[in-house]
Design a binder for these strands. Structure first.
Length: 736
DNA sequence: CTACCGGATTTTTTT
DNA sequence: AATCCGGTAG
């Protein structure tokens, strides 16, 4: 990361203040050596920010505080791990708290669960879990599900929580009928979560923020515990995170925020770019340091990215510069469709690798994770090893969720959602009617559903279904003791004894993939058990629940890395490909009435480009399948915003024939469709704006281009690339 | 209670 | 295009 590396110490003794600051530039040193009072570091892309904040944390530990008094909040768990390692390498041990907002909150709530009325073993609900609960809430309120789409309700509740509105506050704030109705759903949703001791991602933040706000004693304790607070990627904090940051630093005032408004890309999930823009107003006398020298990218890449971001109207001016070499031009490549785009990139990757590049150096970014599919296929076919950044997606797999649901039930007896999931998985003859009988019994007696399941007296009343449930109860009893042991053992035992293993193996079409996934899960758990001998199953579950997409990548894996543009934030690669630079895809637009946030989309593109150290390629296609339909594309307006002198076009733009001749004319050709091209053959009659009528006399089809030689009426003979030449097909009877 | 069939719907981005 | 959900038949 960055050019500036922390000097390695020969002995484990603490680095001195001078060691820590060695080799920093003036502004970097200014930031790293600032200890008391609020500090804002406006760090441009690639300005060595990570190194600076790590050193600042170490510097504080070396001069004014003990390591455990420092709290550093990063954007991903992976970044946290790296920072922890570096601080340790400087000789300050592992007692510094370095984590993400969500894991900090989870940890605090685990410790202070009494203060917020939670069970210590609360479960963290991921998006899918939360979605399922929302569905139940909608049903319980007897709302028409067609008027209350789950994903919309979920998003709105999420926003409410990000704004620290609990159901009561939300109801009070409601101004429209719609909001009043929504508040009923919110109440119902929260009621279920509370009953099941489940917290969704937003609850982690909201509950912590509200607890800090209302519980003076708790706040006082934590303020003194964390006397120095550093928050990275401050431009992407939401209201809840902002509040937590402020509540924690009220007394000592040692809040250090680092970030870059140009890299704010999470507005859609409640991040408020104003948090960073108004830092100076919020903190009188705050010191502000700007880091504008880029150590990462070549001049050309930096110039292209800077020009792009210049198009944003609402922006704090910033001038990035670099002393790095000029480098190669940024390539813009047009492809026919996603398959050719993928093939092209594969060929480029192979070429780069045979030219001596390590696969670790290579990355492909895309706007939508669905775009990874074509790439994966091509990479597999070409035998290029790759890894994909996806955290939650893995844990969303059915077999994984099933297995985890068992663990959850064993840990948190209130978790009826998980209980419902596993009670008949694998099928053991417990159907809907039996389950609803169990539910009624639970309601009647005011106990949890699990209590009823475990109560032989209740089961007797269920008749035949009851014996099946009794067997299930025995199973849970048998599994329970494993929750005290290592996570890997618990998983293995549950998988084998629950029948999940047998059911996956028993299918006629034995699908190896689910079994592999489970093996991987258990292997991960084993790693956890080894790395953290003190860790409990609850800890492991929490860690997996909070795992982000970017956390799963390993930069030394010897593989090409694929990820979304969002996940690429904070990373860097020597050679980068960004695919799908098409209108409505890279400035993304969901549907007709969605205008999206074009500036945020532009920042997203900027983030992707500025990940690149040496070689950047942007690709777009003429055709792409979207939601099952093939769609024609217009090149992304972002491409037009790049400085022409830094761009190399592929295929070259100099056909010399096209009347429009402009880049725009190309991006939205009005001529024949490429579909049509498939049907062109020797003998096809065509018309060209300059040569007029002609006939195809030879045709050669390549991977992404079709070359055709045309003999014209005038006697001229020319070879064209059909995809780009302004040729139209002419019907025989049109020829007069 | 399970299995199967057909219509509807989808995630944009993530902790 | 692929998956998921709900309804119905066995």
């Amino acid at each position: 990361m960055g050019v500036i590396d922390i000097p390695m110490l020969s002995e484990p003794s603490n680095a001195t203040a001078a060691d820590i600051l060695a080799g920093l530039t003036e502004p970097q040193r200014e930031a790293a050596a600032h200890t008391e009072g609020p500090l804002l570091v406006l760090a441009g892309a690639g300005s060595g920010k990570t190194s600076v904040i790590t050193r600042r944390a170490a510097y504080i530990a070396a001069t004014v505080a003990r390591p455990h008094e420092v709290l550093a909040i990063t954007f991903t768990n992976k970044a946290a791990g790296e920072m922890r390692d570096r601080v340790e390498a400087l000789g300050f041990g592992r007692s510094m708290t370095v984590c993400t907002f969500h894991s900090l909150c989870a940890r605090l709530l685990r410790v202070y669960h009494n203060a917020v009325g939670l069970s210590q073993n609360f479960t963290i609900y991921d998006q899918d879990d939360s979605r399922a609960v929302i569905k139940r809430a909608i049903r319980s309120c007897e709302f028409d599900s067609s008027n209350w789409p789950v994903s919309k309700v979920q998003a709105q509740i999420s926003h409410a929580k990000n704004d620290l509105l609990d159901p009561d506050a939300f109801e009070k704030n409601a101004t429209h009928w719609h909001e009043e109705q929504l508040s009923r759903l919110y109440f119902a949703y929260q009621k279920i979560l509370t009953k099941e001791q489940g917290l969704d991602f937003d609850d982690l933040l909201m509950k912590t923020a509200l607890a800090l706000q209302h519980d003076e004693e708790l706040r006082a304790r934590l303020e003194d515990r964390y006397r120095y607070v550093l928050i990275d990627e401050y431009q992407d904090t939401n209201e809840a995170q902002y509040r937590i940051a402020h509540l924690l630093t009220q007394k000592h005032g040692n809040l250090c925020a680092t970030g870059d408004p140009d890299q704010s890309i999470y507005g859609w999930r409640g991040a408020n770019i104003k948090n960073i823009l108004r830092f100076e107003e919020d903190h009188e006398g705050a010191k502000v340091v700007r880091l504008e020298q880029n150590y990462r990218s070549t001049k050309r890449i930096l110039s292209a990215a800077s020009r792009l971001i210049l198009a944003n109207a609402h922006r704090k001016k910033k001038d990035l510069w670099t002393e790095n070499p000029e480098g190669k031009k940024v390539r813009v490549v047009e492809c026919e469709n996603a398959e050719e785009e993928a093939d092209f990139i594969c060929a480029q990757l192979r070429q780069a690798m045979s030219g001596g590049r390590s696969a670790n150096d290579l990355a492909i970014f895309y706007r939508l994770s669905s775009l990874s599919l074509a790439l994966e296929l091509a990479l597999t076919r070409a035998g290029v090893p790759y890894q994909i950044a996806r955290g939650q997606a893995f844990y969303g797999r059915r077999e994984i969720k099933d297995l985890l649901a068992y663990i959850r039930v064993l840990i948190n007896p209130a978790d009826a959602t998980s209980l419902r999931r596993i009670i008949n998985t694998p099928t053991r003859g417990i159907g809907k009617t039996t389950v609803s009988k169990l539910e009624t019994a639970a309601q009647r007696t005011g106990r949890s559903m699990l209590d009823v399941v475990m109560d032989p007296a209740e089961l007797q009343a269920l008749g035949r279904g009851g014996t099946r449930v009794a067997e299930f109860a025995r199973l849970l009893q048998e599994l329970k003791p494993y929750t005290d042991g290592p996570a890997a053992d618990a998983l293995r035992s549950v998988f084998d004894k629950s029948g999940l293993h047998a059911s996956l193996r028993g299918q006629e079409t034995v699908d190896e993939i689910p079994l592999e996934n489970v093996d991987n899960l258990i292997a991960e758990a084993k790693k956890f058990d080894e790395a953290e001998p003190e860790g409990t199953l609850v800890n492991w579950l929490e860690q997996t629940a909070l795992l982000g997409d970017a956390d799963t990548i390993d930069e030394h894996a010897g593989r090409v890395t694929l990820m979304t543009l969002h996940a690429s934030k904070g990373l860097e690669f020597p050679m980068v490909f960004i695919v799908g630079l098409e209108d409505e895809l890279l400035p993304f637009r969901r549907d007709q009435d969605d205008w999206g946030d074009k500036e945020e989309e532009r920042r997203l593109c900027f983030v992707g480009m500025t990940r690149t150290k040496e070689e950047l390629t942007l690709t777009h296609t003429r055709w792409r399948m979207r939601r099952g339909r093939i769609q024609r594309n217009v090149r992304s307006p972002f491409i037009e915003e790049l400085p022409a002198e830094e761009i190399e076009w592929l295929p070259e733009q100099t056909d010399g024939f096209s009347t429009a001749g402009s880049r725009h004319g190309r991006s939205a050709p009005s001529g024949q469709l490429p579909h049509d091209i498939e049907q062109w053959q020797v003998g096809t009659l065509v018309r060209h704006p300059r040569y007029d009528l002609g006939q195809v006399i030879a045709i050669r089809r390549g991977a992404s281009r079709t070359h055709a030689t045309i003999k014209f009426q005038s006697g001229d003979q020319q070879t064209f690339v059909l995809e780009f030449a302004d040729l139209t097909r002419v019907d025989f009877d049109e020829v007069g």
